[in-house]
Nucleic acid binder design. Structure first.
Lengths: 146, 146
DNA sequence: ACAATGTCGACTGATTTAGTCGTGAATTGT
DNA sequence: ACAATTCACGACTAAATCAGTCGACATTGT
């Protein structure tokens, strides 16, 4: 699996924050409940996202977490790379680790796949994820009303 | 990392076998030496490839391993899936495991990436990998001769 | 018979994953 | 000042996966 629960949960949390953009801080416990993430684990993920500059946190009563910049300006690629490290599908394509010579004979195929993946992920913002979720909710309501 | 050493080594072995197609069985020890794979580990990979129908093995002196069908008819996707199981980048896209509801909010993005990946891998045969390697060798010789 | 080769399953050490827990720091309301 | 609330951070851990190793056994050519 390319993505662990870190990437999954972390993006869920970002979506939740984006959905409440402009309504003050959102508390860890609420995100955890709504998105079905263990709260003490979410703690670590929010710390990573804060250190990466995507999230701002406020302590004390009424505190919580907010997006550090508009959801339109945060793309999925950067969020996932902050959480997971390199998304390289094959060890020899990961240039963050040295000594990975390409003698495997399939690196050219995976380079193309990797390029496409990064391009796709870079083109999707957190705002778009929220929009997509809202559409899906709407669809569910329509289905229910029939 | 999406691919473990299993997928990497296994494909290297397939390339080696394809390169010696028509010249009788190739021995494990030779593959291991040429492709820099621990021999006792390669053992397991060849067993998987044989059970998956890509490789045929011959015991006894002069024995070894051969491709079970022409290299043109074996695509990278099938080989990798035999070695690695599902290549799904995200848990909720892996329909071999039940109970993976898509509440993560990013599954639609990854579905597109996954589809592209499978399409690309399905379009590359082991024969093409060999061809590509031969071209690369040729290039190295040219560079050396200058 | 025997040497060369593949087959198979048990076992292992290292690493990663997916968390939990406890203590402490900042902030707000009273 | 103090209590309550919320985040911050590091230590710890259980389970799974990875990347093999090893030894006993089966098959076959000479």
């Amino acid at each position: 699996m390319l993505l662990s629960t870190k990437g999954d949960y972390g993006v869920r949390a970002m979506i939740d924050l984006a959905k409440h953009e402009g309504s003050g801080p959102v508390q860890r416990a609420e995100i955890a409940r709504r998105r079905q993430i263990p709260e003490s684990y979410l703690d670590h993920l929010l710390a990573q996202l804060r250190r990466a500059g995507f999230v701002r946190s406020v302590r004390g009563p009424g505190g919580g977490h907010l997006l550090a910049k508009p959801a339109e300006e945060i793309c999925l690629l950067h969020v996932l790379e902050a959480l997971e490290g390199s998304l390289a599908p094959l060890a020899c394509l990961d240039n963050t680790v040295p000594g990975q010579e390409a003698i495997c004979g399939q690196e050219w195929v995976w380079q193309e796949i990797y390029d496409n993946m990064r391009k796709t992920l870079a083109a999707v913002s957190v705002a778009q994820l929220v929009e997509h979720e809202r559409e899906h909710e709407q669809q569910a309501v329509i289905n229910y009303s029939i």
